[in-house]
Amino acid sequence: MPESSVRLATADDVPTILRLIKGLAAFEDLGDQVKATEADLLRDGFGAQPRFECLIAEHAGKAVGFALFFHSYSTFEGRTGLYLEDLFVLEDARELGAGRGLIRALAQLALERDCARLELSVLDWNPARGFYQKLGFQHNEEWLPYRIKGQALENLASEA
Rank of each mutant, 00 (worst) to 15 (best):
residue 48 A to S: 11
residue 69 F to G: 03
residue 39 A to P: 03
residue 141 E to Q: 15
residue 88 F to A: 03
residue 39 A to M: 09
residue 38 E to Q: 14
residue 43 R to W: 01
residue 96 L to P: 01
residue 99 G to A: 15
residue 98 A to R: 03
residue 18 L to R: 05
residue 150 G to M: 01
residue 91 E to Q: 13
residue 89 V to D: 00
residue 153 L to Y: 04
residue 92 D to F: 09
residue 57 A to Y: 08
residue 132 Y to D: 03
residue 143 W to I: 12
residue 109 L to A: 10
residue 115 C to M: 00
residue 28 E to F: 01
residue 146 Y to M: 15
residue 41 L to Q: 00
residue 97 G to H: 03
residue 12 D to Q: 14
residue 30 L to F: 08
residue 86 D to I: 04
residue 29 D to Q: 15
residue 17 I to H: 04
residue 36 A to D: 04
residue 95 E to V: 11
residue 55 L to K: 06
residue 159 E to M: 13
residue 141 E to G: 15
residue 130 G to I: 00
residue 12 D to L: 14
residue 10 T to H: 12
residue 111 L to C: 07
residue 93 A to C: 12
residue 142 E to W: 09
residue 24 L to D: 00
residue 106 L to R: 06
residue 39 A to L: 08
residue 139 H to V: 15
residue 23 G to S: 04
residue 122 V to P: 09
residue 73 Y to Q: 03
residue 20 L to C: 13
residue 5 S to E: 08
residue 121 S to L: 09
residue 61 G to W: 01
residue 89 V to C: 01
residue 50 P to L: 06
residue 19 R to P: 00
residue 11 A to F: 05
residue 23 G to Y: 06
residue 6 V to G: 08
residue 92 D to P: 07
residue 87 L to W: 06
residue 149 K to H: 14
residue 83 Y to L: 00
residue 158 S to V: 00
residue 125 W to R: 05
residue 61 G to V: 03
residue 103 I to S: 01
residue 78 G to L: 09
residue 9 A to W: 06
residue 158 S to E: 07
residue 114 D to W: 01
residue 61 G to S: 01
residue 131 F to E: 10
residue 32 D to Y: 11
residue 64 V to P: 02
residue 4 S to G: 13
residue 71 H to D: 10
residue 18 L to I: 04
residue 137 F to R: 00
residue 5 S to A: 08
residue 86 D to K: 02
residue 115 C to A: 11
residue 116 A to S: 15
residue 45 G to P: 09
residue 77 E to S: 15
residue 112 E to N: 13
residue 1 M to Y: 05
residue 30 L to V: 03
residue 151 Q to T: 11
residue 123 L to V: 11
residue 98 A to L: 06
residue 108 Q to S: 08
residue 21 I to K: 04
residue 55 L to W: 10
residue 159 E to V: 11
residue 152 A to K: 10
residue 111 L to Q: 12
residue 108 Q to F: 07
residue 122 V to E: 10
residue 22 K to P: 01
residue 41 L to V: 05
residue 81 G to F: 01
residue 121 S to R: 09
residue 104 R to C: 07
residue 149 K to C: 11
residue 102 L to H: 10
residue 147 R to L: 12
residue 83 Y to I: 05
residue 146 Y to I: 07
residue 158 S to R: 10
residue 158 S to W: 00
residue 61 G to L: 01
residue 38 E to D: 09
residue 71 H to F: 15
residue 39 A to C: 02
residue 20 L to Q: 11
residue 100 R to I: 02
residue 101 G to C: 05
residue 141 E to M: 12
residue 99 G to I: 13
residue 2 P to F: 04
residue 113 R to E: 12
residue 41 L to T: 04
residue 37 T to W: 00
residue 97 G to P: 09
residue 125 W to H: 01
residue 128 A to F: 02
residue 70 F to D: 11
residue 71 H to G: 07
residue 23 G to L: 06
residue 51 R to E: 15
residue 119 E to Q: 11
residue 15 P to T: 07
residue 149 K to A: 14
residue 136 G to I: 05
residue 120 L to D: 06
residue 130 G to M: 02
residue 7 R to I: 05
residue 129 R to S: 06
residue 96 L to S: 14
residue 112 E to A: 14
residue 145 P to W: 04
residue 106 L to A: 06
